[in-house]
Design a protein around this nucleic acid. Structure first.
Lengths: 229, 229
DNA sequence: GAGGCGTAAATTGTATACGATCTGAGAAAT
DNA sequence: ATTTCTCAGATCGTATACAATTTACGCCTC
């Protein structure tokens, strides 16, 4: 039953990383139950450590914990989905500006390599990994801006965006993405903060426009939530 | 030894609230050690629950946990202090705009009452409670803007600001604060988003300008950090 | 067959136990 | 006197044990 761990992990942080990657790659879906024993068996640790990891992920909004009922991969509501992208709209454009103005040759190379990997994943038709890479591109920009606090927030928002996309994405093509990332890279090359800020703003609007965020309360699991919340 | 809890608490979240309030009111100082069984004795719960609370607070940046060494009230570096206010500068002005445009009579009354309490605390010369209230004013604005995700971020930043102020505040007078809050309230009354945004921007710049953020690496505890980080 | 009801199994919440690591005081060496 | 070493006490990290709660299945009633 308990098949050996992906690679033997020891700490709670390792479990967070494994589970987070699984969410980002859409290998686990919103709403999926995360039983403590089960996760513990998979990674070869006791529930103590699993609980740490799950609570940690609850903090970043990837997991929602319901008392006495357990942990589930979060299911952002339409409203939460909107809020995530509104928060991104406040943080990311200005961060892209700062990053563009600071970016060194080393950063440009990293971003180029990153975009190459995105293309490669898409070429191989691996939607999950492509999506994860696409998110990491945004995190990378925050890192270049050298704003650790903001980077933490953006990471969190990217994570939640991954759930939002799983729930509300219209088409299956993520092709538009790479164009936007390419354009950003150009702005970085010429250290053009203005362009970077505008491009990021537009990119985020583009993403939202591809979502289907009409109110759709009724759902399999949401009855309980509708009555209790 | 173990004197009865402030009020008997049961859950980890209660401990988080108690400790957070203590930090906001500057009853505990940055760097203070938080031993697990000491905290457990105070609140009458086992280490299991205390650890949950401490890890939760580590996530919001109020506590820093060093493996095998324990939890401490966080000591933001000068750099982190700057980053906190740069993040606030990205989030709060636009949030104040949105709040001003949405604010209803009910919200105005709440803010008025809030400012009254701030004054009262200052009049009684209770610097701690006054500071806490001052922070809550900002949180209240985020709440009025009705952006839960952003509110969470702002709460976190306010918490950390509390630590920053404890470490880097120049004067002891927090008088300027209430003027700024009053001006914001006026903007809210007239639903003037533009003013609210500008006032908040200025208010934050004002706050930073009152901090002493010169590099001052050398410190009692920072030697370890300097070598390990 | 549909809908409650009750009890047993499953699952989470909390406390305790035990091993690992760190801290600090005192002795020995330079 | 200073430094280094040693060892006991203190503290943290993880696993396990037990209590509280929820879930699920069978049973009864209609």
């Amino acid at each position: 039953m308990a098949q050996p761990a992906p690679h033997q992990v020891t700490s709670a942080e390792d479990i967070v990383l494994e589970l987070t990657e699984a969410v980002h790659e859409h290998r686990v879906s919103p709403g999926m139950k995360l039983r403590e024993d089960e996760v513990g068996d998979i990674f070869g640790v006791s529930r103590t450590v699993v609980r740490q990891a799950l609570r940690s992920m609850a903090h970043t909004g990837l997991v929602s914990i319901e008392r006495n009922r357990g942990a589930f991969v979060a299911r952002p509501s339409v409203r939460e989905a909107r809020e995530v992208f509104e928060a991104r709209a406040l943080l990311e454009p200005k961060t892209a500006r700062a990053a563009a103005e600071r970016a060194g040759p080393r950063d440009i190379l990293l971003l180029e390599e990153h975009i190459r990997q995105e293309h490669a994943a898409l070429a191989r038709d691996e939607a999950g990994p492509a999506l994860k890479l696409s998110g990491e591109f945004h995190c990378e920009i925050a890192r270049i801006a050298d704003q650790h606090t903001i980077e933490t927030f953006i990471r969190q928002l990217i994570s939640q965006s991954s759930l939002v996309i799983a729930l509300y994405w219209r088409r299956r093509n993520a092709l538009c993405e790479s164009h936007a990332h390419h354009a950003l890279l150009d702005a970085f090359r010429s250290q053009d903060g203005d362009s970077a800020e505008e491009l990021m703003k537009g990119h985020l609007l583009d993403l939202v426009s591809q979502l289907d965020l009409r109110d759709q309360q009724a759902d399999t699991t949401s009855l309980r939530e509708a009555l209790l919340k």
